Simulated assay, not measured.
Amino acid sequence: MTLRVAVVGAGYWGPNLVRNFRGSADWSLAAVCDLDAERAAKVVGDARDVAVETSLTRLLERDDLDAVAIATPANTHRAIAVQALEADKHVLVEKPLASSRESASQMVDLADERGLVLMCDHTYCYTPVVQRIRDIVASGELGTIHFIDSVRINLGLVQPDVDVIWDLAPHDLSIMDAVLPGGLAPVGVSAHGADPIGAGRACVGYLTMPLANGAIAHVHVNWLSPTKIRQMVIGGSRRTLVWDDLNPQQRLSVYDRGVDLDLASRSNDLADRTAAGISYRLGDMYAPSLPEKEALGSMVSEFAAAINQGRPPLTDGGAGLRVLDVLEAATTSLAANGLMVPISDQAQHDASTQHAEVLV
Results as ranks from 00 to 15, higher is better:
297 G>A: 06
100 S>D: 14
222 N>G: 03
12 Y>Q: 12
151 V>K: 06
94 E>L: 03
125 C>F: 02
280 Y>S: 03
229 I>E: 13
290 L>S: 05
290 L>P: 02
17 L>E: 08
202 A>G: 01
165 I>Y: 00
360 V>K: 13
289 S>I: 02
180 L>S: 03
82 V>M: 15
321 L>F: 03
264 A>H: 08
11 G>T: 09
168 L>W: 02
285 M>Q: 14
90 H>Y: 09
15 P>W: 12
208 T>C: 05
276 A>W: 07
127 T>A: 11
75 N>W: 12
124 Y>G: 00
307 I>Y: 05
338 G>R: 10
134 R>Q: 15
179 V>G: 01
113 E>N: 06
305 A>I: 02
87 A>V: 10
131 Q>D: 12
152 R>C: 04
200 G>A: 07
233 V>M: 06
270 L>I: 15
353 T>N: 10
358 V>M: 06
121 D>F: 11
8 V>G: 11
154 N>G: 11
82 V>C: 14
350 D>N: 13
299 M>W: 07
91 V>I: 06
227 T>C: 09
171 H>W: 03
26 D>K: 11
314 L>D: 04
57 T>I: 00
322 R>A: 13
114 R>S: 09
253 S>H: 00
241 L>R: 04
148 I>Q: 02
315 T>A: 10
235 G>N: 07
178 A>T: 11
107 M>Q: 11
42 K>P: 00
333 S>F: 13
119 M>K: 09
271 A>I: 12
202 A>H: 10
118 L>A: 00
317 G>N: 05
266 R>A: 15
209 M>K: 08
313 P>K: 06
139 S>P: 03
334 L>V: 05
26 D>M: 10
64 D>E: 14
84 A>G: 06
163 D>G: 11
112 D>W: 08
254 V>L: 15
162 V>G: 04
213 N>K: 02
20 N>C: 07
242 V>M: 12
